[in-house]
Design a protein around this nucleic acid. Sequence first.
DNA 1: ATCGTCCATCGACGATATTCGATAAATGTG
DNA 2: CACATTTATCGAATATCGTCGATGGACGAT
Lengths: 111, 111
Amino acid sequence: MNENTAPLQRAEAEEYASWFKALADATRIQIVSLLARRRAPMSVGEIVTASGVGQSTVSHHLKILAEVRFVLVERQSTSSLYRINEACVSCFPTAADVVMGNPVPAAPTCE
Amino acid sequence: MNENTAPLQRAEAEEYASWFKALADATRIQIVSLLARRRAPMSVGEIVTASGVGQSTVSHHLKILAEVRFVLVERQSTSSLYRINEACVSCFPTAADVVMGNPVPAAPTCE
DNA sequence: ATCGTCCATCGACGATATTCGATAAATGTG
DNA sequence: CACATTTATCGAATATCGTCGATGGACGAT
């Protein structure tokens, strides 16, 4: 098990929390799973119609997901194409990471 | 990879979100890591002095963590002894579970 | 240049969450 | 019984979050 016995300081706990906060909302989880199941990038409009919430709400959630690099953006003429960041899915901390005090992973940029 | 291509319905997304909400707060993460590093159960008073937040706040967070079975309680005379639920740490969903649409795990009672 | 489309941002609102102090309930001690 | 200790709960203040409608900016088409 190899636990780290040093106490977890506040700053590290906040970093962990920001990771979990990104997936602590049902709408964001829907968006993420939507992007993951279509392998292809999706425009905001497509996500809006597929998720059933307002356009500004989708845009807001996509911004939060992009801040932790969970999704990646690519502007193409007038539309923004979002896609899942596969590398980020695998580096997302597990509960065991938190409990054992593993170093907080940095979000991968993926190109 | 074996993804599930069926769309994720709202109810399932909510269940996932409730898992991540439990670890979406820095104070709760501190409490959880505290309990995990001491193998022994801790009383509320010990957690209060170790975490530096108010007693009622600690009690509140412990209640939330106990609701998802992340910690287990055992009343002993006047004090409540909390300890981490190892089984729950390992069944906590990963980001890959969310993305691939794995079934949402149920919190283990552990005795 | 004007219009239409697509998206991000702003402002606002209600809902939810975090935190604290005070109080109450349970239990052991004198 | 009275008292101290420990924890849970209540009430309230504050902060954060999720959602929407409206606005504005970027870009392409006519």
